[in-house]
Design a protein around this nucleic acid. Structure first.
Lengths: 168, 168
DNA sequence: GGCATCATACTCGGATAAAGATTGTCCGAGTAATTCCGG
DNA sequence: CCGGAATTACTCGGACAATCTTTATCCGAGTATGATGCC
């Protein structure tokens, strides 16, 4: 039960994009460089976020990515679902129906107790992740920033971000 | 974030072993045949359960597997940890410390908010699974059994189980 | 006949291949800025 | 000098390999049974 490493990349990238001023964008290569990550692979994950509607994108010169929704409306679970797939980790194979003593047809109407327990546990995890938003993470990070850190980040952002096309 | 399929196999095998009379055992091949599963692969998972101390085993003729603890003392989480590894699904790479704007040394004393959120969510899932025991699953399954089902299962068990060595 | 010993058959245990998923990379589709040409 | 169209440069998007984990299997280590030979 290992989560894709790209989830971490995507989550951090979203926190960076959350600091973008309106009508600005960040290139995939810039978002990768910010954390010293492989540019092509980061691009792949950003594409997944775009497909899920979490970020918007624009091609061509002055292109890039930006958040498609307010940071308070983006949860960690959405990111997990976009990158890693929203399918449940435990997938019941209904092996109870196989073999010499299969479960009766009537009992099969109700889900397998084992599968139900896992489903419930995963729901608890999903609910916990759904309650954490990009905004809350950014506030938490910003609370630990010293003036020098904030200035360095702001300078990098101003030097890196691009004007994105007015429409779309 | 996919859970190993062997977790399902192991959990169902434990429910079958929970019905064993005292001082009896079931061979790996029998446990595999009960759910029409690959015998060699089921054996591998039973070995993992044995390493974790969930089941005990005996080699040679009349050998087999049986639960090493009371069904009420075996949780689904223990089985997951034994088969799939108890390591957390989300593993923080500390990418915040890399790149042009690394997090200050002082902030690194506290864990990354993203990692902490995932850790909390996984704890919720783990706690939910820790509350589900093999005993509770067996009771749930047995509640749906008709007399004919119970008899078929009992007959199979009596015909398949073996006396295990008295000691060990 | 009783007992110890040896051979045998049967089971688990760990080491060994095959398959699938994840990770990582590249080149083509699309767009805005730039350049060049004509009026 | 100004306007417009073609060109160019730059970006995202999806298709293509390499690596790793998971899946699946086989043969060797260990043990109780049964046979055999000896007392």
């Amino acid at each position: 039960m290992k989560m894709s490493e790209g989830v971490e990349w995507a989550a951090h990238a979203c926190t960076v994009m959350a600091a973008l001023p309106p009508d600005k964008a960040l290139r995939a290569e810039a978002l990768a460089a910010y954390h010293a990550l492989a540019p092509a692979y980061m691009a792949k994950h950003l594409q997944a976020l775009a497909r899920a509607g979490i970020v918007a994108s624009s091609r061509g010169p002055k292109g890039g990515y930006w958040l498609a929704k307010e940071p308070a409306q983006i949860s960690l679970w959405e990111i997990v679902a976009a990158i890693d797939g929203g399918e449940p980790a435990f997938r019941c194979s209904e092996i109870r129906r196989r073999g010499p003593c299969p479960t009766s047809r009537e009992n099969c109407k109700k889900p397998c107790p084992i599968a139900r327990s896992f489903h419930s546990a995963e729901t608890a995890m999903r609910d916990a992740l759904s309650g954490v938003t990009i905004q809350s993470i950014c506030l938490d990070v910003a609370a630990g920033y010293k003036p020098a850190d904030a200035k360095r980040f702001g300078d990098w952002m101003v030097a890196t971000m691009t004007d994105r096309p007015p429409d779309k």
